[in-house]
Structures are given as structure tokens and as C-alpha cells.
């Protein structure tokens, strides 16, 4: 199990440092040891995914195992990021879990319409959040085989 969780990166797109810390803690507590890259806004996330700007030197074949995407982001919001990911061949098949505070129907519907693979509402109760992250990790990091681009 430990081996399986290592190696592949997780891209966490989150502008709130509290949430970032808590998410990282939840991953750690669930013994998910993958490298976690954190992008703090939509632009940064897209730079990483498309190997541009700050991440221009990155190997474009190395795509993250899963993207944990907040919707409400500075500059470019989460849905836009998702849309652009799905428009690019390189990122089309990368699993995206929308991780957000919003429970608006519209957000859920839009997320799935733009090609999100999962939608997780961040609960206030951290124990529940931990449980959610654990289940996500099990599914997207262990069970799901991501087709290689």
C-alpha cells in the first residue's frame, strides 16, 4: 500500500492557506505520501498543468495522479481551470476532484458538465473531512488506473 501511494504527484489547487494546511494534514493523516504540489490560484494551476510560466521546465508527460480543485480561486476560477484542462489533450484524462465549500446545485452541475470526476464538499467537521479524503485517496490513488497520455 505504501508503495502504491508513492511516486505520482497530487495537484492541490487551493487559495486558502488554512484549507491548504488542513488538506495536507488530512492526506498525511491518511498516510498518503504522494508528492503534493500546491497551486494558489487558477493561473498557477494551469501553469503547472501546461508546463508554462513558473513550471516551463517541467516534463509535460508527468501529469499528476489527481487534481484536487477548489472552485473559488483568485484570477482564474476553478471551473475555468477545469474547462481548459478538458480542452487540452495532455490534461483531458487527468482525474479532477472538485473540493469546495460550495454546495450550490449549480456548481455541482457545472463541475460535472465540465468533466469533473468527483465532487466533494469540504465539511466543517475535520473528522468528516478526513474520512472524505481517505475515501478519495483510496479510489483515485489506488484503485483507479489512469490511462497514460
Amino acid at each position: 500500500m505504501k508503495d502504491g501511494l508513492r511516486g505520482k504527484t497530487i495537484l492541490l489547487v487551493e487559495d486558502n492557506p488554512d484549507d491548504e494546511a488542513l488538506t495536507l494534514r488530512a492526506l498525511r493523516k491518511n498516510r498518503i505520501a504522494n508528492e503534493v504540489v500546491v497551486a494558489h490560484d487558477g493561473v498557477e494551476a494551469l501553469d503547472y498543468l501546461f508546463c508554462q510560466g513558473r513550471y516551463a521546465g517541467r516534463d509535460p508527460h508527468e501529469q499528476p495522479q489527481v487534481v484536487l480543485l477548489d472552485l473559488k480561486l483568485p484570477k482564474i476560477d476553478g471551473l475555468e481551470v477545469l474547462k481548459r484542462m478538458r480542452a487540452e489533450d495532455r490534461t483531458r484524462r487527468v482525474p479532477v476532484v472538485v473540493l469546495t465549500s460550495s454546495s450550490e446545485d449549480r456548481d455541482v452541475v457545472d463541475s460535472y458538465n465540465f468533466g469533473a470526476n468527483s465532487y466533494v464538499r469540504k465539511p466543517v467537521d475535520f473528522e468528516q473531512f478526513m474520512e472524505a479524503v481517505r475515501q478519495l485517496g483510496m479510489y483515485w490513488l489506488l484503485l483507479n488506473e489512469v490511462p497514460q497520455a
Binding site: 488554512d18 472552485l71 473559488k72 450550490e104 469540504k122 465539511p123
Partner: peptide
């Protein structure tokens, strides 16, 4: 309402999460 749902919850989550931590 959207802002409330999204932005008010984040601090609460931090309070809860860090309290637990």
C-alpha cells in the same frame, strides 16, 4: 448567498480543523 456559503465556511473549517490538530 454563494459568498456566504463558500467564504464563511472556510474559517469555520480552519477553526475546527486546527482545534482538532
Amino acid at each position: 448567498a454563494y459568498t456566504v456559503s463558500h467564504d464563511l465556511r472556510a474559517p469555520l473549517r480552519a477553526i475546527d480543523g486546527f482545534s482538532l490538530a
